[in-house]
Amino acid sequence: MNGFVFDFERPIVELEKKIQGMKEYSYIENVELQDEISHLEAKAEKLRKEIYAKLTRWQRVQLARHPQRPYTLDYLQRMMPDFLELHGDRRFKDDPAIVAGVGHIRDLPVVLIGHQKGRTTREKLHRNFGMPNPEGYRKALRLMGLAAKFKRPVVTLIDTPGAYPGIGAEERGQAEAIAKNLFEMSHLPVPILTIVIGEGASGGALGIGVGDKILMLENTWYSVISPEGCAAILWRDAGKAKEAAEAMRVTAKDLLEMGIADEIIPEPVGGAHRNYDEAAKILETVITERLEELLALPTDELLEKRYRKYRKIGYWEESS
């Protein structure tokens, strides 16, 4: 994948360019360079592993926001070829910041809901940078209603910098829309699988994120507020985002340790943005496996487990 490169990716990208150059040279000039190439490839592999194992929390946040990172529709094209998008909340309008629809993952019929960011300036504006208005949450809920009625599991893909803070959003009840989704998702009588594929910011993420399992791709973040937002409030300086990301512990690994995420889904080496097909293949496999496990549970047990999952989150002490 060409294009944007973060500083911490640069040594790898440069080495890969060099390898590519040697391969071309070897081919064009008909020179035997296989030993040198193999040597460099091994070196690149080692470098990738070293760099990606040691990424700071802030670098993970940057990867989650990588301009070439696959979005919901990129995954859908690959793992749900028969995806049929359904629009609108039947109340006010259609919100392009959330896509929702029906189709199959492998042979499994599912209702899929995900935040959607845009790639070009025009698309970004159309998708409102992946920041939903209340209509997005209400559309999601409408489709969850279809899932419950027709006994289809729900898969949600989370990737949002937050619910949109705007006048219209407040007028039309952003808080109520999110609250209602948490309420309904907590007892929706079909399996819900939630996967953070990019950014998981605040109530805007959680509004489609209450499920039986919370999975996170390796290079994603999920917290109560963005690192910049936290820094602006606690340090009065959005430039302290790096420190805020550390303090809030926002990465997939952190959320697994906190007992909130159930599983980390590995990405292709270097990040999902470096290989969409492979990333989608991994995601497809994990979704299918987890859904099959959840579909095997009786509804009562499913709902009791879901309740317990959230009920036990948090830490406190009790004295008298």
Partner: peptide, 25 residues
């Protein structure tokens, strides 16, 4: 939500909503 408890705070939204849904049911 209380930022200093980060994702723990966020998940209290789901916890409280879930309890209220049961109560309502």
């Amino acid at each position: 939500a209380r930022m200093m408890e980060a994702a723990f705070s966020l998940m209290q939204m789901a916890k409280t909503a879930a309890a209220l849904a049961r109560f309502s049911d």
